[in-house]
Design a protein around this nucleic acid. Structure first.
Lengths: 158, 158
DNA sequence: CCACCATTTTTGGGAAGCCAAATAGTTTTC
DNA sequence: GAAAACTATTTGGCTTCCCAAAAATGGTGG
C-alpha cells in the first residue's frame, strides 16, 4: 500500500536530493516535520518497498521506482497549484491544498484538470475568467455578451 | 482533532438519519465498510466529542454540532462534485474524488470553487466550456474568437 | 414469561506512525 | 588517535483505527 505519508516522504526526499544530491535523516526530519526516529524507521520501510537506495548511516537517493512516483506527484502538484492560482487563490494556499489533494485525487480527474490548465494558459487572459473574478469580487454576474447588446453593456459601464 | 475518519462517520450517519430518522451500528458499519466493533467504538468517541446523541444500544442522531459539520461537508461535496462534472468527469469518479477532497481542502479554496461553480451554472452552456471540451476530446485548441475574424472561423469549420 | 435471534458492546490484539530516551556509529577537533 | 560533537538507530511506549471472538443486551414468537 502506498499511503499518503509514504508519498510525502518520497516528495521530501525528492526535493532534498534535487538540491543536495542526496538526503539524510536530518534533512527529511526537518522537511516532513517529524523526529529522527520516525525518519529512520521510514527509511527502512521505503527501502524494503524499493523506493529508495539506503544503507544504514548512508546517503539516500530515490530508486527508479521512487523517482517515478516523485515525478507523478510533482506533476500533479503543479497542475493543482496552477489551477488554484488561475481561480485566483493565494499562492500559499494553492500550494498547501495541492500538497494534500495530490495524494487522493484520481488519475481521470487529474487528466481533465491538466487539460483544463493547458487550455486556460493557451489563451492569454481569457474574458470569461476576467468575468469570473469580477463576479468573485463584486458578487455581481456580468451579463453574457451573447445575450445582450453592445449598447446595453456600455450603458451598464457608464 | 477532527480526523478525516471522524468526518466520514459523521457523513454516513447524516445520510442514514436523513433516510430512516436514526442510525444504528449495523447501518453505519455497512456504509463505512468496517465491522460492528469499530462503529461501536466510534459511536462512543463521537458522543464524547459531542457530535452525536448516543446511549448504548440506542438510536443515534446528530447533535447540533454534528449537524453543522455534516452540513459543511455536504456542501463541499456538492460543489466539488458539480465542479468535476462541469469539467466533464464521469459522475461516479466526480463523486469519489469529492468524497476524498472535501476532507482536506481549505476554506478559502472552497469559497473560490463555490463561486466558480455558481458562475458557470449561471450561464447556460458557456462557449469557453464547449471549447475546452472540444480541446479535451481532440487535443486541438480552438482559436480565440477575439483574435480571429469571423470569416476565418467559418472557413475553419467548413 | 422465557428462550432464541439479531444486534451491540467488550475484550484482546494488530498495523501504521509517532515520540523520547538510550544507544551506537561517524566526523571533527585538538 | 582519542575525546567531543554530531548524526542515526533502536527501544519502549503512545494514539488511532481496525478486526475477530466472546459476552451482553433487547425484542419477539411461542
Amino acid at each position: 500500500m502506498v499511503t499518503t505519508r509514504i508519498e510525502q516522504y518520497i516528495e521530501a526526499i525528492h526535493e532534498i536530493v534535487k538540491k543536495k544530491g542526496y538526503a539524510r535523516v536530518k534533512d527529511v526530519s526537518e522537511s516532513v516535520g517529524v523526529g529522527f526516529s520516525a525518519v529512520s524507521e521510514m527509511f527502512s520501510k521505503l527501502s524494503e518497498k524499493g523506493y529508495i537506495n539506503y544503507e544504514k548511516h548512508g546517503w539516500v537517493t530515490l530508486t527508479k521506482k521512487g523517482e517515478k512516483l516523485a515525478t507523478k506527484l510533482s506533476k500533479r502538484h503543479k497542475v493543482l497549484r496552477d489551477f488554484f492560482i488561475i481561480l485566483g487563490i493565494d499562492e500559499k494556499v494553492a500550494d498547501e491544498d495541492a500538497c494534500e489533494i495530490e495524494h487522493v485525487v484520481r488519475k481521470e480527474t487529474m487528466d481533465r484538470l491538466t487539460k483544463f490548465v493547458e487550455f486556460v494558459k493557451s489563451h492569454e487572459d481569457p474574458l470569461w475568467l476576467k468575468r469570473f473574478k469580477e463576479y468573485y469580487e463584486t458578487g455581481k454576474l456580468p451579463e453574457c455578451p451573447r445575450t445582450i447588446k453592445k449598447t446595453k453593456i456600455q450603458s451598464r459601464n457608464n
